[in-house]
Design a protein around this nucleic acid. Structure first.
Lengths: 205, 205, 205, 205
DNA sequence: CATGAATGAGGGTTCATTCAT
DNA sequence: AATGAATGAACCCTCATTCAT
């Protein structure tokens, strides 16, 4: 077996096919978990043969990793958008609201999938590394966004940014996961309170 | 053999044996996940033969469910303790701190296991139901604790308790999970900030 | 997965089962080659389920190795017998004759299987190592046998024993393989000649 | 597409392409065995696409057979050379020496490949037939060479030529295989002995 | 002539579960 | 109560082969 490049011929088509696999895998993983979803499930959902998936991904694990990567890109672009808003705090709050409204159908940063990723990372070193890398990137971008907010005067200056990011990230993760697991929560009430909390905590007096 | 005794002979001994299996399963699940840990792994760690586990549990899923059940009880007792504290808000904050300090070694209420449970709940209806039940009990207990806090004057009166509980639960889950996944976080800084947040948000002016 | 001892309960029964697998594997390998025989083939021939074979052998490769080992033991005992004969050269010649008369049914040192082993050894390092080990042991034993022959006066003294062993081993291998591949050879004529050759070459004048 | 042309357009170019495939296949087979080398390996080494190989060969087995055929031709031409030597016995001995010196790099007549062929022949009837055919041709040619040797007076007259050929062929095969499997043998010592053996056995007194 | 995408059967292996002892 | 031998389905992955381009 000689290391062959995966999907070389027509790059555009190959990439479309890769996305097709990732979409299918995302759905399967969400339903059954990484271990629970079989390559056969994925291939059926992707509408191609099992063997053919291996033209695009070396491994089942390579698919998992690509999904984590894709999620990272999606979240990163969300954060990047924050920076361009006139009131970062306000945008942050809106972002959080969207996190909780978003439904599993949106493939890219699906809460249930994120949960799966989190769980997998505690035992798969490669996924763990990817997640750490994801976190570093997101943290940097987030930090910039908060700094912009401080310059705007929409976020308190005295805060220790590093810890603030940890805390906010934890809260966001918590909201996302809760949203995934308890779809029947009174989102509006909760969001109203959350808005209040952020305003009272981050907005300068 | 009598039809499906499932450990009837000496009730005390049988229960000890069951706990033995659950302890072993907890460790295995934490390390490898529900799907990743094999019955053989569990039996080896429990120090009994694979076949014998089936005297105490109908199948692997029953073990998973018993683990979830046990975790539920553990969290519930944590909350019940809240009510007995003179300053509920203060105790809440302490509780959060403990959540973040607790190490994977404590079997009952392990973050990594919780993550596993969360992920499993989105595909295993029994686990999902148990989680919902856990949540209902937890919510009731939590509500009482918060009400006591309001009577104590340690928590603002005007808050919508239901949504507050949702929000707090989400935040706690987020902290627990972050703790599990990022063991190298600056916990102290984050806790200081979190304390500040809760105080500013919940303590009456 | 914890490293479990393979087949522990009743050692005698377990060993019988192992032999059963080896016998079946020998037949399958002879018919289809190491790569060509599937675990499913072997299990069918051994009269047990595919999965159960893994209770006795870690791998398909472990089966191959056990077969090589078994062949080594068989050949070794053949050589050991030589030493106990009054006329070693005569016994050697008789042994060669038997090599060429023996039919594939005798499992232990089946020529076709030996051929398979040889071929496998040129690409499987573990088998190659085993074969080297086999050769060292056989060479030592063979050397002793020839030395005894020299003391008996049945084998010329001046020969360089090391090279003589190489040459004889090559010739024996050639005969065995030829026997396996050309079952229609005139064995008697060939053996008569071979006897003559050995006598004229090894017997002191 | 015209039905099953199998390389008809430019015969010379087509044949060159076929040889290209056979060269590549030879290398792959030697490294990994017939079953172990994949069509993908062969195509990569031949520098053409997997699918295109099927323009020149009906399937993988056809490649195997062509390789065996090519090897047969190579051995045959070796023997034909014998006849043109003034002292056939001497040339025979030289030939044997070359057998043992030849390194795996020479594609056509590689010991490791021969071993592979031998092993394959016991299960692939086509290969077996080719091997038998090779043997018949070889035997005829060999017989002529030996007869010439007898006329020259370099080989004893009384020998039963048929059996002698069988024996010599077996010995040669044995030497070749031993050379392939034990590259660290003391070749010189062994050859000296072999020379002695042939001289003493075949040279008229 | 030439490609490589695509298939699907089959490979070795694992594992939840059952059952005779 | 307790064992571990035994099963068979399912897993991930490979590969000879075909076919549209």
């Amino acid at each position: 077996m000689v290391g062959k490049a995966l999907g070389k011929g027509n790059p555009a088509r190959a990439d479309a096919r890769r996305q097709q696999v990732l979409d299918a895998a995302g759905q399967c993983f969400r339903r059954a978990g990484f271990r629970g979803a079989s390559m056969s499930d994925i291939s059926a959902m992707a509408g191609m043969s099992t063997g053919h998936i291996y033209h695009y991904f070396k491994n089942k694990e390579a698919i998992v990793e690509a999904i984590v990567e894709r999620n990272k890109d999606s979240v990163l672009s969300d954060i990047e958008q924050l920076k361009r808003q006139p009131d970062v705090l306000q945008a942050l709050i809106e972002g959080a609201s969207q996190c909780m409204v978003r439904r599993p159908q949106d493939d890219l940063d699906d809460p249930a999938l994120l949960l799966e990723i989190f769980a997998e990372s505690s035992r798969n070193p490669v996924v763990a590394a990817l997640l750490r890398q994801r976190d570093a990137i997101l943290r940097e971008s987030f930090q910039e966004a908060l700094a912009i907010g401080q310059q705007q005067g929409s976020i308190v200056r005295e805060a220790d940014l590093n810890s603030l990011i940890d805390l906010l990230a934890a809260i966001f993760d918590g909201l996302i996961i809760r949203n995934a697991l308890h779809p029947d929560t009174d989102r509006d009430g909760m969001l109203r309170l959350f808005r209040l909390l952020l305003e009272r905590f981050l907005r300068p007096a």
